[in-house]
Design a protein around this nucleic acid. Structure first.
Lengths: 120, 120
DNA sequence: ATAGTCGCTTTCCTAAAGGTAACGGATAAC
DNA sequence: GTTATCCGTTACCTTTAGGAAAGCGACTAT
């Protein structure tokens, strides 16, 4: 039905499925933010993530971290420190998301200028 | 607090804000999918989008399109055809999102192989 | 006049996301 | 023994996203 079709239909459908997988995994208010902080700082403890992801509550942070770990995007390491601390870090597999985040950040910056300049 | 800091704090905070803006705008189950279809086909009518975004209901599609239009990512054009048709197309500003979608698709493909190969 | 297409809108509902607040065990400092 | 830190968990609640089903106005074809 569409007027133009730039690529085979099957290839396009595969892309749609892959996109839906990625969305199912990463959508929500916090996951990208958590990952960005880990990209920037390398390794962060629970409390660090609570502070850098401004506004998140411990309950939600805990849940997001579990989901990211289940999907092998981060690792969880318990350190035997004085009060127990837990370190979170990215897995190699998570580096595949870095281009996504970079692109999102860049779009966000441009969109800010575009929209907030227009509607004022 | 974080162990390593690869860039100035202010720059990082700006990135976090831009990322949150982008997430607020694009998160959800359908927006990326709609945009991908428009990238692929160039221009689509309401019903085309309903078919290519498999599973979406007219109500939700309508809402998503309105939000995308409000944010100047797509244009809405009413054609004076026999039964009324409406064409949706991307704005130049929307091309900024293409890298995001490409990166998401690529991640989705790799993640499929990684996870579904592992857990079987 | 009946039935179909297209682009929605409306109503109703459920499930999930996410927030608030308080508490828990472990350990350590005062 | 009281307080504090760290990493959560639990219980409860509100908000939002999103799905199901039906209808509607304009037009067309039979």
């Amino acid at each position: 039905m569409p007027a133009t079709c730039e690529q085979p239909l099957t290839l396009h459908k595969e892309k749609v499925l892959a996109l839906k997988d990625a969305i199912e995994l990463l959508s929500g208010k916090w996951k990208f933010c958590i990952l960005l902080n880990l990209y920037n700082y390398g390794t962060l403890r629970f409390k660090d993530l609570q502070e850098t992801s401004v506004g998140i509550t411990p309950k939600v942070l805990s849940k997001e971290l579990q989901e990211l770990e289940e999907n092998q995007l981060i690792t969880r390491t318990v350190n035997n420190t004085k009060p127990v601390t837990v370190s979170y870090a990215l897995t190699p597999h998570a580096t595949e998301i870095q281009p996504v985040i970079n692109a999102l950040v860049e779009f966000g910056l441009k969109h800010r200028m575009k929209i907030k300049g227009t509607s004022s």
